[in-house]
Amino acid sequence: MSARLGGALLVTLVTAGCAVGVSGTPSAASQEAVDAGLVGGYFSDGLAAARTGVAAQREFLTRTQHPDFRAGACDPGELVLTVEPALSTLRPDPGWTAGSRGRPRGRVYVVAVSVTAKRDGATVGIQIGSQHVVVLDGAAYGFAPCPR
């Protein structure tokens, strides 16, 4: 008797769980999910530019520099920076400011990254840290790194 009751309970739970996911209308993706896709694309484009070389990376960094911070942006020189994000760590960071330059317009996110710096194909440094990316007007923007 208890085996039949247990089986019936399991069937009820399984079908109840399925019914919850079937009914209703699909909801639009959350703004954070849309932004996460844009941020992921930003890093994919950056990695592709780094694989191509210094000139392609310089063009990428210039094109994707946050519009409010283009004047006085850093230039990594002849370094090629491979920036690999851990996108599972992506989170909003609305209180972040870019030092004395203030808070950028847009939705600010921070993500853990691993950065490998190469010069003439030779690795000159590896660093793990965080990077801020801002979504503004449907595009992801960053801040060109300043190697020291």
Rank of each mutant, 00 (worst) to 15 (best):
M1I: 03
S2T: 07
G6Y: 03
A8C: 07
L10Y: 05
V11M: 06
V11P: 00
T12H: 02
A16D: 03
G21I: 08
G21M: 14
G24E: 08
T25I: 11
P26I: 12
P26F: 13
A28I: 13
Q31H: 12
E32L: 10
E32Y: 01
D35G: 13
D35H: 15
L38P: 10
L38F: 09
V39H: 09
G41R: 10
F43Y: 14
L47R: 10
A50P: 06
T52Y: 14
V54M: 04
V54N: 02
A55S: 09
Q57E: 13
F60A: 11
L61W: 11
L61C: 05
T62L: 07
R63P: 06
Q65W: 00
H66L: 08
G72I: 05
P76V: 06
G77I: 12
E78T: 14
L79A: 10
L79G: 09
V80P: 07
T82M: 12
T82H: 12
V83K: 08
E84I: 08
T89L: 05
T89H: 02
L90N: 04
R91T: 05
R91H: 10
T97A: 05
A98P: 00
R103L: 01
R103K: 05
R105N: 00
G106M: 00
R107P: 00
V108G: 00
V108F: 02
V110I: 00
V111C: 00
S114A: 06
V115R: 09
V115Y: 01
T116Q: 04
T116L: 04
A117K: 01
K118H: 07
D120T: 09
G121S: 05
T123V: 15
V124F: 06
G125T: 12
G125F: 14
V133E: 11
V134N: 14
V135G: 10
L136G: 08
D137Q: 15
D137E: 14
A139S: 14
A139T: 12
A140Q: 10
G142K: 04
P145I: 04
